[in-house]
Design a protein around this nucleic acid. Structure first.
Length: 295
DNA sequence: AAGTAATCCTGATCGC
DNA sequence: TGCGATCAGGATTACT
C-alpha cells in the first residue's frame, strides 16, 4: 500500500535514472494497467517511444515524468501493489510485470550511461501508467500538473501546502476525521497505514466528527501527520540503494516502528491497553480504545 | 452539492 | 491435498 513516503522513495530513485534518458522501446504486457490512459495501448506506445524524459515529480501518491519539449507527462500511480523496478536489460522479468520501458539512461545498468530497463510490476492492477496533458495548478497557476491530478490537494510535505485552508475546510466538513484524512482532495498522500499512525500519535479516534475536533487538536493532528510521513520517508530513503534498486514501495515501510496499524491485540506502546481493529470504510482501523476516544 | 457505498483486481492465506 | 472463500485497500464511479 504505497503512500506518500513510498511514492517519494520511488520518485527519488527514478530521478537519476530517467532524467535526460530516452525511451527506446515500450511494451505493454497488460492492457488493464493503462486504464487511466485515454486511448489504446498503441497510442500509449507511440507517444512514449523516442521521447526524452525530464525529472520526475510527485503530488501525494501521484507520480509523473514530464516528456521533454512537450506538454505531456508519463503519469504513474502505484495503486495498491504497484512497483517500479530499475533493471539491467538482461535481468529476468518479474512474473507480474505489466509494462516495460527500455531506456538509454544517464545511469544505465552498469552505473554508467547506457541501457536500462524500467519494469512496472503490479499484482492487483489498481495501479496504472498513462500519458496525460498538463494544466495549471488551481492555487498556483504558474505550476503545471497533469490533468487528472488537478483535483488532488497538495500533500502536507509540499512547501505550498496551506495549513489554514486545510484546517478551515476540515472544520466545515460534515464527516469524520479518518474519512477526511483519506480524502485526497482535502489533503493528499495519506493512506490507511499513516492515517491510523497519525491518529494514534494525536490520540484521536478515527470516527471523531471533524466539526467537533477543536482547532488545537486538529493542528496537532496535522503536525503528527507530517511527523509520521517524514519519519517513514527518512527510513524508506535509507533502505534504498542506488541502482537496480528495488524502487519499490513495500520495501520502504517502517513496519518495525508501527504503533497502531496491524498491531491489533498487542499492547498500546503508550498505555499498554490492547490495540483494537475495527472495520471502517471497507478497511481496517487500528486504534487504542483508551488513548483514542471521541471527545 | 456533498457524502458515501460500490466497484475494480488477484496473490496469499485460511478453513474444511 | 485440494479447493473455494476471504482479505488487503486507492481512486473512480455511481448513487442517495
Amino acid at each position: 500500500m504505497p503512500e506518500l513516503p513510498e511514492v517519494e522513495v520511488v520518485r527519488a530513485g527514478l530521478e537519476p535514472a530517467v532524467t535526460g534518458a530516452t525511451v527506446r522501446r515500450v511494451e505493454v504486457v497488460e492492457e488493464r494497467s493503462l486504464r487511466r490512459h485515454d486511448g489504446p495501448s498503441e497510442d500509449f506506445v507511440a507517444r512514449l517511444t523516442g521521447t526524452r524524459l525530464a525529472a520526475p515529480h510527485r503530488r501525494g501518491k501521484f507520480l509523473w515524468v514530464p516528456l521533454a519539449d512537450s506538454d505531456e507527462v508519463l503519469a504513474i500511480h502505484l495503486g495498491m501493489s504497484g512497483q517500479v523496478l530499475l533493471r539491467s536489460p538482461d535481468h529476468p522479468r518479474e512474473r507480474l510485470t505489466r509494462i516495460v520501458l527500455d531506456l538509454d539512461s544517464p545511469l544505465g545498468g552498469d552505473g554508467r550511461p547506457g541501457p536500462l530497463r524500467v519494469d512496472f510490476v503490479d499484482q492487483r492492477i489498481f495501479g496504472s501508467m498513462a500519458i496525460a496533458g498538463l494544466v495549471p495548478a488551481a492555487d498556483h497557476p504558474e505550476q503545471r500538473i497533469p490533468s487528472h491530478v488537478a483535483h488532488i490537494a497538495r500533500d502536507p510535505l509540499d512547501p505550498l501546502f496551506d495549513d489554514r485552508r486545510f484546517l478551515d475546510r476540515l472544520r466545515r466538513k460534515q464527516t469524520t476525521i479518518k474519512r477526511a484524512l483519506l480524502d485526497q482532495t482535502l489533503v493528499s498522500g495519506i493512506g490507511n497505514i499513516y492515517a491510523d499512525e497519525a491518529l494514534w500519535a494525536a490520540r484521536i479516534h478515527y470516527d471523531q466528527p471533524t466539526a467537533t475536533l477543536s482547532r488545537p487538536r486538529a493542528t496537532t493532528l496535522l503536525a503528527e501527520v507530517r511527523l509520521v510521513l517524514g519519519k517513514a520517508l527518512a527510513e524508506g530513503g535509507t533502505s534504498f540503494d542506488a541502482q537496480y534498486v528495488n524502487v519499490n514501495g513495500a520495501s520502504g515501510y517502517f513496519s518495525h516502528s508501527l504503533n497502531a496499524y496491524g498491531q491489533q491485540g498487542l499492547p498500546c506502546p503508550r498505555c499498554g491497553t490492547p490495540i483494537v481493529r475495527e472495520t471502517f470504510m471497507n478497511r481496517g482501523s487500528h486504534f487504542c480504545p483508551r488513548c483514542q476516544r471521541i471527545r
